[in-house]
Design a protein around this nucleic acid. Structure first.
Lengths: 332, 332
DNA sequence: TTGTATGCGTTATCAT
DNA sequence: ATGATAACGCATACAA
């Protein structure tokens, strides 16, 4: 493989000059720059990223860490983020990680080895945000979760999951529902917990006591939603409405209800959470809580770009949500 | 940040010995190994990947290149691949790339810089598979497309897109349909082309001439399917069946048909292509062509693992598909 | 404006 | 079994 040495040899210049051309340094004569560029082109030379990363102090890259590659909501959020950052001519690199991977560890590597100048987390909770990591002074933005750490380098823009879940169930209650089951989510995650809490609060408010048997957790998937709903239907026959802790779960639930010969929403109503695009393609259209990904993404990008240039403390904002009235909820 | 030097200093051993411990070389005494490991643990030392990659001749990693992160079919295929490779205790790294990125270029980097020992391509056509790349002698497997290059290092396991599309339309024809419209896909891709060709062949076989106006291309998305279907419905009012060149497109089409007050399948039948999980959660369940991802993934992994150990030529196999009879097609 | 030399953190080769 | 040291390919401080 060709290295910078080869280009130097072929061009007759030194590797120093070649390096300057590669990195667009100003102190090279136009003629030399031109000549070297041509040779680079002709030889298909590509700088070795490993060697490069070892030398540079900081790169111009903002890294985005996405937790859970199957998460449709994150995928949609990511799309907006990418588009905004592209508008700002901001180089980015996206890193998908496993649901149960350690995002702080990953971030650490990104900073240490790829020398990212800024970080955006989609999911994750930075529970283990460490002093070491903090010592690098890299501004970060956390989306869709509240920050555990109170480090001033972190901003967060999140939906109030508790309040949103409350609204979802409240919407069902307004339609006359009382026998409401809750499906999906993981009570070991802050998000899952908050959503269930919000739902319970709405129930309690009208004097309905929440019974554990009306809740069935599930993986965040179509299949998970289907199975959990199946369990709930078997367990109780008085359910008139279902609150799914995510749209993907809701779509699994929807199919399950139909398979069990329930008419939606006539016999059983269904409301989801997230507001993913797919929900509006479902038949019937999914009623759901819409998290405002546009605003989230815009604020995240604006905040990060500012803090990249000016020393400021991170901010923490709650982004308003919205109930999308689809066709899966009806009055009792 | 701690480096191997620090660990050497702290432990009292040389960096050579520390390196040996890190890489599990046998020629270290158990006692030394133990001591050094403890220090590594205590100091939270992590080897620098950049430096490491510069030195190693070849890593033990198989890289998977996925073209188009929004592609649900690839996502499902990837899941099976990952599970199979994990069973074989095979380290992998997944790289998502843009739909119109150059996968050969990316592969080149992966081989040169991450020293991958094997490659799996999801999508892409290796049109530009170069001599340079070939000179590295890295076994590769191409899934879901036929190889352009005849390099003996490449295996491929693919669905016969032309035949499968033929079967899809033939299925509609058997149900009595003649006014069949085709929606979605990109005629600049081999896959899109093959699927359209197969559909046309089925039509021609029963003496129906294919008219261009009964075909509307689209992006590979819900929205794309919706819009293209809209166009077709506006253009013709004698359509009794729709063949979507992908399931995601089909689901967009389904929503569009319903919005236009067509009953599916009573008034208009619909068949998709791919066999993604989501299709079986749609209401009604999607009739579609199922590509056998299990077999594809199994064969890909088996073939690659064998060729990693024995010098053999790549093979090219067509994997049988299957018509899934959902509920979106009925007799006329 | 250009060239030279040093070091980044490793692995691997050659000693010991 | 362990240590010393030469690369790997590049950016950069310093020299010219």
């Amino acid at each position: 493989m060709k290295t910078i040495k080869d280009i130097a040899r072929i061009s007759g210049y030194s590797i120093g000059t070649v390096s300057r051309v590669i990195n667009n340094h100003p102190d090279v004569s136009d003629e030399t720059r031109q000549k070297i560029k041509e040779i680079i082109e002709k030889e298909h030379y590509q700088p070795n990223t490993n060697a490069k990363n070892m030398k540079i102090k900081t790169s111009d890259i903002i890294s985005i860490l996405v937790k859970g590659q199957a998460n449709v909501f994150f995928a949609e959020l990511l799309e907006v983020l990418q588009s905004r950052l592209e508008d700002a001519s901001q180089e980015i690199s996206v890193h998908y990680m496993d649901e149960n991977a350690d995002e702080v560890q990953e971030a650490f590597l990104l900073i240490k080895e790829k020398k990212s100048k800024g970080l955006i987390f989609l999911g994750g909770d930075l529970k283990n945000y460490s002093e070491v990591l903090s010592s690098y002074r890299i501004p970060s933005v956390l989306l869709t979760n509240s920050p555990y750490s109170q480090d001033s380098l972190i901003s967060s823009f999140t939906t109030d999951n508790e309040a949103a879940a409350y609204s979802a169930v409240h919407h069902l209650i307004l339609k006359g529902h009382k026998h409401i089951a809750i499906v999906g989510g993981n009570q070991n995650t802050p998000v899952g917990k908050a959503r269930l809490q919000g739902a319970i609060r709405a129930l309690n408010e009208i004097g309905v006591e929440f019974k554990q048997s009306y809740y069935e957790p599930s993986r965040f998937s179509l299949d998970g939603g289907y199975t959990a709903t199946s369990t709930l239907l078997q367990r109780h026959n008085d359910i008139t409405a279902l609150f799914a802790l995510g749209d993907t779960i809701a779509l699994g639930a929807l199919r399950c209800l139909v398979d069990h010969k329930y008419e939606v929403p006539k016999q059983i109503s269904l409301i989801g959470f997230d507001g993913i695009e797919l929900g509006q393609y479902a038949i019937p259209r999914l009623t759901t809580i819409h998290q405002d990904i546009e605003t989230m993404a815009n604020k995240a990008v604006d905040d990060l770009l500012v803090r990249l240039n000016y020393q400021r403390d991170g901010i923490h904002e709650i982004i308003p949500f919205q109930v999308i009235k689809g066709a899966t909820v009806s009055s009792i």
